[in-house]
Design a protein around this nucleic acid. Structure first.
Lengths: 240, 240
DNA sequence: TAGTGGTCTAGACCACGCT
DNA sequence: GCGTGGTCTAGACCACTAT
């Protein structure tokens, strides 16, 4: 267990732990064994195991709490707000927008959906449209495409029963944990449909957020296009 | 040296090192003493010093290179592109935009400038306007406000001689190292002036990036408002 | 060959959360 | 009081860079 391979030990251990998370060996919210137990199991020192666990914590895959233990990360409201919602009011407050899903339908992927979700052309996607409210007013139009194979039964659910926190649902219902995402932003004019849904005139500048989310296993699991009114809100990004 | 204060040792050492960077005790590009020397100097173990240095590296304040040493971070073209330029082409390529400064003038700060740059109302700011080209076409209108006290002599420089990489200039000429920044994004309609400079019609949706940059000492050192055409470009943000 | 940062270990003690 | 993660130490060895 001490051959100096290309990849350092702590990284190999980290990979092994991620595999166990992917396999749902430990489930969201559950505690992992403590550092000593894990170190013994993998035949490494506590320090090496600690480094692996610290890196998992940095990637938000686990949460470590002094005196309590190390827990598999859950998609709670807090995590959604701090890590996957970069919109805030002009005064700097973040609030989870309410959602109203007005359409859900399955179909064949477009060429772009197939490419970006890494699906075969014959796969099916479930498409979901919703309007989201900020401070009670319609502010976001959202169109979501999901690989049907990963979310069986979704299209038969009642769209009005879908929760606001989709990521928590993906995780609890289908074991799909969104681990990271890339967002691409543009300023676009409101289409006729956007305008109608948001109550603005056609051509009003909207902030378009194109998000591709990836699950724990690294594969794409959601494609989401949000068009946001930024009259009283803004998107925040921290640079170092 | 082993009293368990509120703040852990490695954090105290890190703060002490940052103070020395702020004081320009070590200058950008220069090597710091090695881990053992620093550890001895501060009366801590090499492991503790390593942790402090690793955190500085993570904040991009120093760069560590195996076999060579630890160096004070410089504002190079690479750093600007990877850390302070989130615009890329629709095909995913990043290119540093060329710049043409068309105005530079000093004056009293507006109320908002004074508040956000944390300046007294009687201070002076230097304002600088430029158009930036992406792929040869005007794509960004940028308005920058700087605290005059921190950049003496700037307003007397020839605006046509200002380099593309302003952060490298701030660092080399005035010892002001931009350490981090917060960007706030909105979609806004092009004003008459924007439209003229960018060659688009009034009301065209533009991506507005409002950036407040902070120096090593944590104080604000630049306020920058960029309005960007996103017809063929996009802003990228990574979420974890 | 010498000097640097990177990895790994083993062990002591501290701070926190519970019961 | 006990179990957890968090800090700190001391020391060995590896990998990279330069001379």
């Amino acid at each position: 267990m001490d051959r100096p391979l290309a990849r350092p030990l702590y990284a190999q251990v980290k990979d092994a732990l991620i595999r166990r998370l992917v396999d749902a060996d430990w489930k969201p919210g559950q505690a992992l064994p403590n550092e000593f137990a894990l170190a013994a199991e993998y035949g490494v020192s506590q320090g090496t195991m600690r480094r692996a666990l610290d890196e998992l914590a940095q990637a938000n895959l686990v949460v470590r709490r002094q005196g309590k233990g190390t827990f598999v990360a859950e998609h709670t409201r807090e995590r959604a707000m701090f890590h996957f919602l970069h919109l805030e009011t002009d005064s700097g407050q973040r609030a989870q927008p309410e959602s109203r899903v007005f359409a859900m339908k399955a179909g064949a992927p477009t060429r772009e959906e197939a490419r970006r979700l890494e699906l075969p052309a014959l796969a099916r996607v479930v498409r979901l449209s919703r309007v989201r409210l900020l401070d009670g007013a319609a502010a976001i139009v959202e169109r979501i495409a999901l690989p049907g194979a990963r979310f069986p039964g979704l299209e038969k659910m009642d769209r009005t029963e879908l929760p606001n926190e989709l990521y928590a649902l993906y995780q609890s219902r289908w074991g799909v944990s969104v681990a990271r995402a890339v967002e691409r932003l543009k300023a676009v004019p409101a289409s006729a449909e956007d305008a109608g849904l948001l109550g603005v005139t056609v051509g009003t500048p909207l902030l378009e957020i194109d998000r591709l989310a990836r699950a724990l296993d690294g594969r794409p699991c959601e494609l989401r296009l949000s068009r946001c009114l930024t009259a009283r809100h803004r998107y925040v990004s921290e640079l170092v």
